[in-house]
Design a protein around this nucleic acid. Structure first.
Lengths: 253, 253
DNA sequence: CGAACCCTTGACAGAAATCAACTAAGGTGG
DNA sequence: CCACCTTAGTTGATTTCTGTCAAGGGTTCG
């Protein structure tokens, strides 16, 4: 574990308010490691041995069923994931893999469970974090059930613009195939839909998004606080696609 | 509040382990009320003033967006709902309405928040409950993204059979239109799909489900612990479609 | 330089939403 | 008690959307 990492973890909403002694205890069992890109970190169905924290890089949470696969979320620094499985001491519902070279901190689940039983402040933080995760997945499910593909794409593109500060142009933070899977469609479908969206106020040039008519795009997407967020919480715990990413320049140019 | 209701609430996993004094405090601010069928209990977007507990009847959680609507879950006795919004003191992400005449207990959100800060045992229960809710929604989302309509229907029918004790025949616990919405399709689509499923080992006669070839139906549904549950938790907190329902005889005959 | 891999495009088949009409069952009010 | 009305459910015809299969261009990385 590196010197600067402990304070970073400590600043996470999940760990910010806990007692000093509890934090020490948790970190005693922690270990950090750097993984190459494309590595499977956890496999759905396995017992939840560790709470994972992404310090650098990016991790994809995805699910498998019967030779099909879909992306559920992308976790970026500094965020944790699979807290729920750790707490329930239950099998992971999702798999996780690194999207790029990534540095993770792993906390034994048993330590996490032990600590929130003795540190009420930590328990409260865990409650807040879980409630936030829950609400994020509910939003995702709402989007899937209430919106058409084009509407989901339009909403996503607008949300990314908002997260970058209402910019008119930005770089997609993830590969299109991953985005397609996250939005619940095939890459081919996304590709075609993006093309037809040029008539609705947004142009895509490679990985660059250019909003040409925000009003028109907004009319199509009809963004909704209760689907697109925010819950201006704090932590992002394996929840939605990329937060922050201020300049819109994480990948590509 | 009726005499027998307090012990029933106390038996819920969410309240089972808390201190006596805390329980008393919570129940002091509680009030119970019976509502007619079809009444809107809460509207998405409203501030989360109360934690709701279903004592009798059934409550549908649904979402609205842009003149579309979809069912997210059905809560049956004895279960709670919208815990997450209460805890975050955030707007409800879902609306709720009674499906039949229902008796509810309402706990002021502020009381809930206050109590879990002072009663570590209650905090731990809340953590468990939220983690369970989170996992349930993740399962639901996985089903929507990984399975086709027919597979979702087949899985649902099999799961209901399992919940009723591997029976070969049972009565659908909810209206078909609601089921269609829950499974992410139109009523027409469900109706047609059910017809074609007769070739795959299940026959529907009105509200009665008859599994004629379990092996065949199972081959189609490919049930998966990581989608269809269980998390043999305890509480069901507004999470999936009906639990229990032992004889499969809640509605109809 | 070659091998993957991502992305795109085209052609096609299958699935699902929509619109409309019709039936049946349940509840209401005369 | 019956006529009526409302609503769930079904079925059909049609259109739209989506997934699948296949091929080709471009890029990255070893």
């Amino acid at each position: 574990m590196r010197a600067h990492e402990l304070p970073e973890i400590r600043r996470l909403p999940l760990f910010r308010d806990m007692r000093h002694a509890s934090f020490e205890t948790l970190m005693q069992g922690a270990y950090a490691q750097t993984f190459p890109a494309g590595l499977e970190l956890i496999r759905q169905g396995d017992p939840a041995d560790f709470l994972h924290i992404v310090m650098e890089g990016a991790v994809e949470l995805y699910s498998l069923w019967s030779d099909r696969e879909c992306t559920m979320a992308v976790v970026q620094p500094v965020g944790s994931f699979i807290l729920a499985a750790c707490i329930r001491d239950a099998p992971y519902l999702m798999s996780a893999r690194t999207l790029e070279r990534s540095r993770l901190v792993l906390l034994p689940s048993s330590d996490v469970r032990a600590v929130f039983r003795t540190d009420p402040e930590f328990a409260v933080s865990v409650i807040g974090e879980l409630a936030g995760c829950y609400r994020a997945v509910v939003r995702h499910a709402k989007g899937l059930k209430l919106r058409t593909s084009r509407e989901r794409i339009a909403s996503y593109l607008l949300r990314q613009s908002r997260l970058a500060g209402e910019v008119a142009s930005y770089i997609l933070p993830v590969e299109k195939r991953l985005l397609a899977s996250y939005l619940g469609m095939t890459p081919e479908n996304l590709s075609r839909a993006l093309k037809t969206l040029e008539a609705d106020g947004v142009k895509i040039d490679g990985t660059r998004v250019i909003i040409t008519d925000r009003a028109r795009l907004t009319a199509l997407a009809r963004p909704d606080q209760l689907i697109d967020g925010p819950d201006p919480d704090g932590s992002t715990a394996g929840v939605s696609l990329p937060p922050a990413n201020v300049a819109g320049l994480r990948r590509g140019a």
